[in-house]
Simulated assay, not measured.
Amino acid sequence: MDNVISFSKAKKKLARAIKEKQAEENRAKFGRTKAEKDTSHKTSELENKRLDQNRIGDEEE
Rank of each mutant, 00 (worst) to 15 (best):
R55Y: 13
K9Q: 04
N26G: 00
T33W: 06
A35T: 10
N48K: 15
K12L: 04
A35I: 04
V4C: 05
E36P: 02
E60L: 07
R27K: 06
N3C: 13
E60G: 01
K13F: 09
N3E: 10
I5M: 08
K11V: 02
K37L: 12
F7T: 03
R27T: 04
A15E: 10
S40D: 10
R16S: 15
R32P: 00
K34S: 04
I18V: 11
K34I: 04
N26V: 01
K13C: 00
K37M: 09
V4F: 07
T33C: 03
L46V: 09
K29F: 10
A10D: 03
D58S: 10
R50Q: 15
E59W: 14
D52I: 02
E20I: 01
K12N: 08
R55C: 04
I56C: 03
E61G: 04
K34N: 06
D38M: 05
T33M: 02
R55D: 03
F7M: 06
E47S: 10
G57N: 10
R55S: 05
H41V: 01
D38F: 01
K12R: 12
S44G: 01
K9I: 01
A35P: 00
E36T: 03
F30R: 03
K42T: 08
E45L: 14
T33R: 03
E60F: 15
A23H: 06
R16C: 10
I5T: 11
N54P: 01
R27N: 05
K19H: 08
D38I: 03
E59H: 15
R55Q: 12
S44L: 11
N48Q: 14
R32V: 06
K19S: 13
I56V: 13
V4E: 12
K42D: 15
E47T: 06
G57L: 08
H41L: 10
M1C: 06
K29E: 14
K9V: 01
K37G: 00
D2Y: 08
E60M: 07
A23E: 10
D2P: 01
R55V: 07
R55K: 15
K9D: 01
A35K: 09
K29A: 11
D52H: 08
K49S: 13
K37F: 06
E36N: 04
E45Q: 13
S6E: 12
E45S: 00
K12T: 01
F30M: 03
S8N: 14
A15M: 05
E45K: 08
D2W: 09
N48A: 15
E36W: 01
D38T: 03
S40H: 05
N48G: 06
K13Y: 06
D58C: 09
L14I: 08
Q53H: 08
